[in-house]
């Protein structure tokens, strides 16, 4: 499998009134062709901005640094502005979390898709319109002629997310960043949207970076998973490995918190403690304040990301399910 994206030691900080806040620290990941990489973590752990930094969609007070950010052999850190505008939308497209607010309320939804085509392809308005309607049909919208002329307030959240997907997929991007695409939707619609994305991944060979706080959804979707906590990558592995042998206590906690109807009436598990603010990040392991197994070493030293089995990385001094412990 070819590597499409290779990011090494990505760090992101924000300049704020309270000083420099480090939001992402030394995150490395690769995305292969056809793969679906899941990034999972609680809100504020840096998963969205990690993805947004690839095409420079961060607010202006963000400072991004990395050792490498290769996309298709091209270094994203040093490309010029024109190339960046070309990559946005055409090579790397994004689906956002809130379809209701992520589309322009004053523009017909069809026009918003057509705008994308006209921006990246040389086609007449008529061709672009036809392509839009074809794509809208493909993502499961019916009565597309009428829908083309609708406004966002006239459609449901599920329909709007389909429009968003149609818009993101219309130029057949190599990478699709899906930033919690189903969080704002009803559960029944959620399954349909996930199914649609999987189907598009197969048909168009589009790689997906799937961002979610829900390991249950990640389990259904992704080939690989990266777990993030307070800006650190704490564990990274193939999905099946991670689910069977979670090595980081945080991953274990996340897995425990997925409701399981088979277990009967047991109480839902919750990881104790609260998520820290970026400014109160501990000196040692980021998770040490909430970890039952934490020792003095955890509180003072930051564990390195280590490979405990092939392609299974974990940032913990005392990984679970490991022969040494």
């Amino acid at each position: 499998m070819n590597q499409l994206l290779d990011v090494k030691d990505l760090s992101i900080a924000f300049e704020t009134n309270e000083g420099l806040l480090k939001a992402v620290s030394n995150v490395s990941f690769q995305l292969h062709e056809n793969a679906i990489l899941g990034i999972v973590g609680e809100s504020g752990c840096g998963k969205s901005i990690t993805a947004m930094s690839l095409i420079n969609l961060l607010p202006s007070n963000a400072i991004v640094s990395s050792n490498q950010m290769l996309f298709n052999g091209m270094d994203l850190r040093s490309i010029d502005k024109n190339k960046l505008y070309e990559i946005r939308g055409k090579d790397i497209a994004i689906i956002f979390q809130e379809p209701m607010t992520s589309l322009n309320p004053l523009m017909k939804v069809g026009q918003q898709i057509t705008e994308m085509i006209r921006l990246h392809e040389n086609s007449t308005l008529k061709e672009a319109k036809q392509k839009t309607q074809w794509m809208m049909k493909k993502v499961g919208l019916s009565n597309v002629k009428k829908l083309y002329h609708s406004y966002t307030h006239e459609l449901s959240g599920g329909m709007l997310q389909r429009v968003m997907i149609a818009m993101a997929m219309i130029c057949q991007p190599k990478i699709l960043i899906a930033d919690e695409p189903t969080t704002a939707l009803d559960v029944t619609i959620q399954a349909q949207i996930l199914e649609l994305m999987k189907q598009l991944n197969k048909e168009n060979h589009t790689s997906i970076i799937f961002i979610s706080h829900d390991l249950g959804v990640i389990k259904e979707m992704c080939t690989e998973v990266m777990v993030m906590y307070l800006g650190y990558c704490v564990e990274k592995a193939d999905t099946s490995v991670l689910l069977k042998h979670p090595a980081h206590p945080y991953t274990y906690g996340l897995l425990q918190s997925i409701p399981n109807p088979k277990k009967g009436k047991s109480r839902l598990y919750a990881i104790p403690g609260r998520i820290l603010k970026l400014s109160e990040r501990p000196k040692g392991c980021p998770f040490c304040t909430r970890c039952k197994r934490a020792t003095e070493k955890c509180r003072t030293q930051l564990p390195e990301l280590q490979e405990i089995s092939t392609n299974h990385f974990v940032r913990c001094f005392y990984p679970l399910d490991h022969p040494q412990n």
Partner: peptide
């Protein structure tokens, strides 16, 4: 929606 517009290129 402005962020979306930027993401389109």
């Amino acid at each position: 929606y402005v962020r979306t517009a930027y993401s389109k290129g």
